[in-house]
Design a protein around this nucleic acid. Sequence first.
RNA 1: GGCCCCUUGGUCAAGUGGUUAAGAUACCGCCCUUUCACGGCGGUGACAGGGGUUCGAAUCCCCUAGGGGUCACCA
Length: 484
Amino acid sequence: MGEVRTRFAPSPTGYMHIGNLRTALYAYLIAKSNDGKFILRIEDTDQDRYVEGAIDVIYNTLKIVGIEHDEGPDIGGDYGPYVQSERKAIYEKYAKELIDRGGAYYCFCDKERLDNLREQSRNKKIPFKYDGHCRNLSKEEVVKRIEAGESYVIRQKMPQTGTTTFKDEVFGKITVENSSLDDNILIKSDGMPTYNFANVIDDHLMDITHVVRGSEYLSSTPKYNLLYKAFGWDIPTYIHLPLILREDGKKLSKREGDASFEDLYNKGYLKEAIINYIALLGWSPGTEEELFTLDELVERFKIEGLSKSPAIFDTEKLKWMNGEYIRKLSLEEFNKLATPYYDKAIKKAEVDYMILSKLMHTRTEVLSHIPEQIDFIDDLPDYDIDLYIHKRMKTTPESALKNLKEVYDVLEALDDWNFDNIHDNLMDLIGKLGVKNGQVLWPLRVALSGKQYTPGGGIELAELLGKEESLKRIKIGMEKLSKS
RNA sequence: GGCCCCUUGGUCAAGUGGUUAAGAUACCGCCCUUUCACGGCGGUGACAGGGGUUCGAAUCCCCUAGGGGUCACCA
């Protein structure tokens, strides 16, 4: 076999949802794991759906995640142009050839007639199929009507008997009755090809060896096969991918599912985690490992590892995996990524972000969750003194008040405000009082944060908030407690 | 509805005729511990159902059920 060539052929809708990205990933992996080429082709034959800037979304996403194409509209290649709207003349030529070969025909049926047909089949409760009205027009009549300026499309002429079988690498052999195949439109009345035609022409002309796409194309693949046959072309290796479903089992939709790469990325999921996670939706390395970089995926990827059944996109697991990637970051890297989120939550207080990052690093699964975890830094929330009661710690409002006073005095006397100093002095106090750590530290943590859970304990928070603010908050705590 | 496809714990999944049916996540418990988190240890939980084939079936065949895809001058 020659060089493996795969392609990712999105239509520019301005939106890269997770399923599309995964298709791109797999196409890339199949090419790269075979030292092949990965091509980007833009399928923009639907002019009504033109979206400004949509192609940039595609470029940007691929660039961010590191899926680099070897050929494409932006970088060229030997098989261009890589934008379908620029290949109009090519499709036209092949459509004519196909007509000559008897695999297609001109059709002059207008929308009204078609709608009528559709209405009829709906009433009869049978699936709509073009009735072949124009299938056998004479050449003369066709010429005459075209010259008269009648609008036309070109339809594929499906065999009316027999079956068509094709082999898919993941789904195996699939056979359908030719009679169930509709005479699809190949060239629209605006002269543009439909996907049904363009994908076959382009895949052939661009020497695509492995066609990778979602399983929603499974049912139209026989038609494409017939096209290849009509032209006498080699049929590529088909690799249809199982769908990715939403948590409720429905197909991903951009309306509700919100599972676009962009959304996830903006929410604070790391690109490495997203790629790693979606790689595992529908593919398994066959081992127990599950953390892979893109390069490692290239190394491990095998078509045999693809599964047939659809996978549900599970945010919980993505979260966990994102946490894994965050924990792998160095403190400095984490700090850098977290800073914008700190800025969002901290407007007034002056805190050392590196100290904060030490606390947040193992406590962050998704970056966007950072602000709510540190919302107490700017403003001490108005909390209930019940917070001072901790069963296991055996703290009560009374003991809390007593120990808070002790803490206040110790901390107030501290000149050098750093973790070790705070720690040692507080521990001394605890020793002197002869109580458990929690007796002192729990009330301190509550007084400083006013929250039930915080990143870090009393000592860490004291260091973070600084002497002045810490003392102020402890005082507030004592006041609350003595009032009760 | 026709056609096509799919079906192992809540989720992702290994498994290709003989296994105590992996692992991960989630959940629960214990340990660590100044809360939480991290980390460590342990636990609950699955072959959709029914028929075959076979000495033996999660693995092969059939039926049923459930789910999905597709039936456009969209891709």
